[in-house]
Simulated assay, not measured.
Amino acid sequence: MDAAPSVTPVSENAMRPLAIEARGLVKRFDGTTAVDGVDISVPEGAIYGILGPNGAGKTTTLRMLLGIIDPDEGVRKVFGHSRPHDIGRLIGYLPEERGLYPAMKAVDAIGFLGALRGMPLAEATARGRELLEENGLGHAADKQIRQLSKGMAQTVQLLGTLVHRPRLVVLDEPFSGLDALNQGKLERMIRALAEDGTTVIFSTHVIAHAERLCEGVAIIAGGKVPYAGSVDAARDRIPAQVRLETRAREGAWRAALPADARHEGDYWYFSLPDSGIEPLLRALIEGEAGILSLSIERAGLHDAFVHIAGEAAARALEEGNAAEQDQ
């Protein structure tokens, strides 16, 4: 049985103030509805994922939350403010379209981005050098962006997003284009931000990142959000699966197996009964089934995504992952 991810209990979530609250967000472009009735609530200090295939409406949703574009319908608040631009210094945003001046030095690029958020340029540049040192890029501080690898340049832009110490960090497809090593480094940075009380919300089409990192997720497909809530609750929409191996092949104990039980090879497979495993265990023991092994496996977030969003959205998600890996 796999361990449940560490998440904040629902009762505690209810007591936490919200960093982001959105209700009924709708956005249309040239008569086409790109986002249709999005509801999202993100507690302060959470790591929250917007999960869906490319073209599902993730970027449009993030831009509405940040006030970059206004919704045609609905309301959104960031730290209680309905005009996110008024609290821009509290927000760090990494857009999906990466872009730094190629001739600018790495440390100056971070300083420039900090100055755009209201920091004195000298202070932002000094802080940028510290961040580069802390993240193993001190040797690259005075190199031009064009001299850096793609992963290093993306890290520099991320550090520019964080240099002014924002309370909310919004990352649009931050793992896109990164190799496994840099993806791992980014995951550690995101966890460190949350441990310091920073709220992190990121969009992704890679389920594994959301499952490892997120306390809550919004699943988005076709501009709609069929699910928004905890990762645990999403997984629990599919009953846990039991795998049972017995010494005995026949006996009265078989009547205790659930109706969906199927026998494959040496094992029985079935959904965990609503009553739990204990009544079944008693029936197996009393019926002398001879239990050789028994395991209970919860559904993963991928299975939950398929169950909630449908096969078509899941295929689009997988096709997007495959296309990115081929690049």
Rank of each mutant, 00 (worst) to 15 (best):
M1Y: 14
A3Y: 09
S6V: 09
S6Q: 11
V7E: 14
V10W: 09
A14D: 10
A14F: 06
M15R: 15
P17F: 03
A22E: 03
F29T: 07
G31N: 05
G31W: 06
G31S: 08
A34Y: 06
A34I: 11
D36P: 01
V38Y: 06
D39I: 04
A46S: 15
I47W: 03
G49I: 00
I50F: 15
A56D: 04
K58Q: 05
T61R: 03
R63V: 00
L66K: 01
G67S: 08
G67V: 04
D70H: 13
P71Q: 04
E73T: 07
E73S: 12
V75D: 12
V78C: 06
H81T: 01
S82M: 08
P84S: 03
P84G: 02
H85Q: 12
D86W: 04
E96V: 00
L100Y: 01
L100V: 08
A103L: 08
A106G: 02
V107W: 03
V107T: 07
D108R: 04
I110G: 01
I110W: 02
A115Q: 13
M119T: 06
M119V: 03
A122L: 12
A122K: 14
E123R: 12
A124Q: 07
E130A: 05
L132Y: 08
L137S: 02
L137V: 03
G138F: 08
A140S: 11
Q144R: 15
Q144H: 08
R146M: 09
L148H: 01
L148T: 04
Q154I: 08
T155D: 07
Q157N: 03
L158G: 02
L158S: 04
G160K: 01
T161N: 01
L168G: 08
V169A: 02
V169T: 01
E173G: 01
P174I: 00
L178C: 09
D179T: 11
L181P: 03
L181V: 14
Q183A: 15
G184E: 09
E187D: 10
M189S: 07
M189F: 13
M189Q: 10
I190N: 05
A192F: 09
A194I: 05
V200K: 04
H209L: 04
H209C: 05
R212C: 07
C214F: 02
G216K: 02
V217N: 02
A218G: 13
G222L: 04
G223F: 06
V225T: 14
V225H: 00
P226E: 10
Y227W: 08
A228I: 02
D232I: 13
R235M: 09
R235E: 07
D236M: 09
R237L: 13
I238G: 05
P239C: 06
Q241W: 01
R243D: 10
L244P: 12
E245Y: 09
E245R: 15
T246K: 10
R247M: 13
G251Y: 12
D260L: 04
A261D: 02
G265W: 10
Y267G: 13
Y269I: 04
P273A: 01
S275C: 07
E278R: 14
E278P: 09
L281R: 12
E286M: 13
E288Q: 15
L292C: 08
S293K: 10
L294M: 15
R298S: 14
F305E: 13
A309T: 11
A309M: 11
E311H: 14
A312G: 11
E318F: 08
E318Y: 10
E318V: 11
E318A: 14
E319W: 06
Q325R: 14
Q325Y: 08
D326A: 15
Q327N: 11
